[in-house]
């Protein structure tokens, strides 16, 4: 009896950690640069494919693939930002459209390169077991996901609040012109932030590829949910963490009472109603930018 109550709660944290991993990069890019990045899902997909490629051609161990995926996708993100996004910063709706075009191109290119058949990422053995603690039972990979979510969160926090770069990023976010007049190169800060956000998506892709399957179209599934988390959270990183955990728990509880699809639907209705009354999101001090 106790297990049937506790297990959904733990599953909820696990779902929340997946939501958080997929939304973190998006929150960084949106929060700092104000860019609605529709290609985020495809960055996740690229992360999964780069992990697959590194693993199948060079036999790189999975744990090492995660940082590699981070850097590969980060570089791709940097190139895209330098060549396209940086011209569109004052046109938010157009960035949305342009990144959508980017997502189409990335999806189709990876379909041409890797084919549209399903690819799998091999996990190390210690991650594919089940852990039993008395009445509780959960897979180690899900625990690993929670740990990775915390690590990525810590890295993000550290960069934003404990480095010079973080100070620059926060300065540009608060007031671009003022920051620029203090000698901060705003364009460069935006590029680095975008690359960092893309890299986070790449690391997420390495995880999700191992969690389920690798497909050229896998990104679409994550991007919508990730966006909902960022919007619900109010655009900040802390808000996204809060929203992801809450949404994971709610979804898990609904899924326990009804079924999985119903749970998603109900959660979504809940978010729509919430936005009616708190359009600035769960955690937001000001009126926000919308």
């Amino acid at each position: 009896m106790l297990a049937s109550i506790v297990n959904p709660l733990i599953l909820g944290i696990s779902i929340g950690s997946i939501l958080l991993i997929s939304a973190l990069g998006l929150a960084v890019i949106y929060g700092a640069a104000g860019v609605i990045n529709m290609a985020h899902g495809e960055f996740i997909m690229l992360g999964a494919y780069s992990t697959y490629t590194l693993q199948s051609t060079m036999g790189m161990p999975f744990l090492l693939c995660i940082p590699c995926a981070f850097f590969i996708v980060g570089i791709i993100g940097f190139v895209i930002e330098r060549n396209l996004i940086c011209y569109l910063y004052n046109r938010p709706l157009d960035t949305l459209l342009a990144t959508w075009g980017v997502s189409l191109v990335l999806m189709q290119s990876s379909r041409l390169i890797f084919g549209s058949d399903v690819k799998y990422i091999a996990m190390p053995e210690f991650l594919s077991t089940n852990l039993e603690l008395g009445i509780l039972n959960f897979s180690t990979f899900r625990l690993f996901l929670i740990a990775v979510a915390l690590i990525l969160l810590f890295i993000t926090w550290f960069i934003f609040y404990r480095t010079r770069l973080g100070i620059k990023i926060r300065a540009v976010t608060q007031n671009k012109e003022m920051a620029a007049s203090f000698g901060i190169n705003a364009a460069q800060v935006y590029s680095i932030t975008f690359a960092f956000g893309a890299g986070l998506a790449g690391a997420a892709g390495a995880m999700f590829g191992a969690l389920s399957i690798v497909l050229p179209t896998m990104g679409m599934h994550y991007v919508v949910e990730a966006f909902l988390m960022v919007v619900t959270g109010g655009g900040s990183i802390l808000g996204t963490v809060f929203a992801s955990t809450l949404a994971g728990e709610i979804q898990s509880i609904f899924a326990f009472i009804f079924n999985d699809t119903m749970a998603r639907g109900l959660l979504f209705i809940l978010i729509v109603v919430l936005l009616r009354f708190r359009p600035q999101g769960l955690l937001s001090t000001g009126s926000g930018r919308r």
């Binding site: 609605i36 938010p92 709706l93 949305l96 919508v224 949910e225 966006f227 909902l228 919007v231 979504f268 978010i271 729509v272 936005l275 359009p279 919308r290």
Partner: peptide, 9 residues
């Protein structure tokens, strides 16, 4: 953009 995302969701 937020409305766009909500319609997509």
């Amino acid at each position: 953009p937020f409305f766009a995302i909500m319609t997509l969701a």
